[in-house]
Amino acid sequence: MSRDAVLSAVNLTRHYQIKGGPFSRPATVKALNEATFELYPGQTLAVVGESGCGKSTLARVLTMIEPPTSGKLTISGHEVSLKEGQRPPAALRREVQIIFQNPYGSLNPRKTVATMLEEPLKLNRKEMSAAARREAALEMIAKVGLRPEHADRYPHMFSGGQRQRIAIARALMLNPKILVLDEPVSALDLSIQAQVLNLLADLQEEFGLAYVFISHDLSVVRRIADDVIVMYFGQPVETGPAEEVFTTPRHPYTQALFSATPVADPNRRRERVHLKGEPPSPLAPPPGCPFAPRCHLATDACTQDDPPLERVDDRVEVACIHVDQAMARYARAG
């Protein structure tokens, strides 16, 4: 782990054992396979991919809600070694907080905003007086762009964007170093989405927070990410600096994902790299490269082995044995 990384993941993997039923055999679902990356203060790592590709699983492992089945997770220099059912030390848990997609489900309807914000302090900062807790809560309420009179209201009195602000405020109460944001703006209307993204940018600047930003919205990711991991079927298929990946997508799946994303410009109707079919079932993984059944470049060799991530550029890694062809073809398609 390089000296200033706040989090490092090496071959982080999470598998689930599915019990067999009367009609099915027990099976292993490889929800997350060998993710390796580092996270730096003040930087945003985006994780993109379609539903079921393992984004939320990664979020749960990073926030220590679930242990990895293998691989190494290091947070603030401490290696997290956990067995199933074990709880990580409180000091470590404080470092990483999570924000979920659904600003409706993630807040307790029976607690006021101030109560929710003071709660983590009550549990973790026993030395703080009630008055000091209240003051800290009010300060945070202002920081996330809510008004003082909001402190004593209940979640149902707020709009989606305001609830997401409350969730962010609560996550920041214990000064974490890392925020894991699982689709934090996907449920919000466009005009509100921009407000929340700006708030996240302000807070990152002020507190030097590191973000893991999980999203399927590529135009949002392009705007805010420093680095990006593209996942397919539980595994990273392309990683690198966002600018690099967005200007020159190298993996056939990244290319297809980008070209499937509609662009808000009616003068740019273009021919797409069309992706046939749907992602495979996690209960019946295809042999070799998991993208092979949908890949227009797939050859017999692709169905032999699952290609590992390989460095193709200074800082870009791609898991594809025909990456040169993929790039040449993409360049031709314009």
Binding site: S191, A194, L197, D202, R222, V263, A264, D265
Partner: peptide, 15 residues
């Protein structure tokens, strides 16, 4: 407010 139309501005224009 569309991220892809905001260009290089530091923050997104908001409503």
């Amino acid at each position: 407010a569309l991220p892809e139309r905001a260009g290089d501005q530091d923050r997104l224009p908001t409503i």
